[in-house]
């Protein structure tokens, strides 16, 4: 079911793009990520708008008064919160639902990239069994399209990287390889989380975001360091596109990049 609905169409779309752009797998990953992000952009936009509305509520005078008034009555506070949501037309789930819908798409995108890079016999057998000529036959009017099975094995070379292997740059005099792409993943993940996270009036909430802003980029960097560079390329592309999406929607928080100075106490 998962394979039929998500993975197989994604793999065939990825192969189609790969064929269309002259068999460059790195570019195909970037283009495929852009296309999926464009398709899911309305969901992302909805999520961003709803999140903003919820965030604005935190600094709303009426809400702050309600919080003060019912700070010792949790039930009443919840009732008032729901009333306020209703009055202001805010749905607390409107920001979560698009994320939930996008979740399988993100995982599917990731899995299809991994499976398309198959460079062991089992991976190759799995990949070939998922290739269908349907998309290629439907769009056969495009000149130069090949039988998708003849695209295997994919040309995994992109710039200095082999998309099927972890990326390292070896510099003479240094005994170990430098994982440039993994560093890019950490930097772009950090920038993404920093730029799109708006500060909350709640200190505990801010503390948690702060921790996430550190751990998530490091974890993503570790994935990029350990696994095929095609995956790292997808992470970088995805991070950069997300930043652009937020910028287009005017939800950038540049101030988050500038460390705050503590006011000198007199």
């Amino acid at each position: 079911m998962w394979n039929t609905i998500i993975i197989e169409p994604f793999i065939n779309a990825l192969l189609f793009i790969y064929d269309l752009i002259g068999e460059n797998f790195g570019l195909a990953i970037i283009l495929f990520t852009i296309i999926i992000k464009l398709i899911t952009h309305p969901l992302t936009a909805k999520q961003i708008t709803s999140s903003k509305a919820l965030q604005d509520l935190q600094s709303d005078k009426e809400w702050q008064d309600i919080q003060k008034k019912y700070k010792n009555d949790r039930d009443k506070l919840a009732q008032e919160q729901m009333r306020l949501y209703k009055e202001k037309g805010i749905s607390p789930f409107a920001s979560c639902l698009p994320t939930l819908i996008q979740f399988p798409i993100i995982i599917g995108l990731y899995q299809s990239i991994i499976q398309t890079m198959g460079n062991t016999p089992i991976q190759m057998v799995n990949l070939v069994s998922k290739i269908s000529p349907w998309l290629f036959n439907t769009l056969s009017f495009i000149p130069g399209l090949k039988d998708p099975i003849t695209l295997i094995p994919l040309n995994s070379q992109f710039l200095w990287m082999d998309m099927g292997k972890p990326e390292r740059i070896f510099i003479p005099g240094i005994s170990f390889g430098i994982p440039v792409l993994a560093i890019f993943v950490v930097v772009t993940s950090f920038l993404q989380t920093k730029l799109i996270t708006n500060p909350s009036p709640d200190a505990q909430s801010n503390q948690m975001s702060g921790l996430m802003n550190i751990y998530m980029p490091l974890l993503m960097g570790w994935f990029a360091y350990s696994f095929a560079s095609g995956l790292a390329l997808y992470f970088v592309a995805s991070n950069l596109i997300t930043i652009v999406q937020y910028a287009i929607l005017g939800r950038f928080n540049f101030s988050a990049l500038i460390p705050k100075r503590k006011k000198a106490e007199k």
């Binding site: 509520l57 935190q58 607390p92 990731y110 996270t197 909430s205 975001s209 996430m212 994935f223």
Partner: peptide, 27 residues
């Protein structure tokens, strides 16, 4: 973003990481 929403995204993040780590085929 209120506190419950932040928790939601934290959990989504964790789920994404679990899902990603489970399908890399590394081991």
């Amino acid at each position: 973003m209120n506190k419950s929403n932040r928790y939601f995204y934290l959990w989504i993040g964790i789920l994404v990481l679990i899902a990603l780590s489970g399908c890399t085929g590394a081991t």
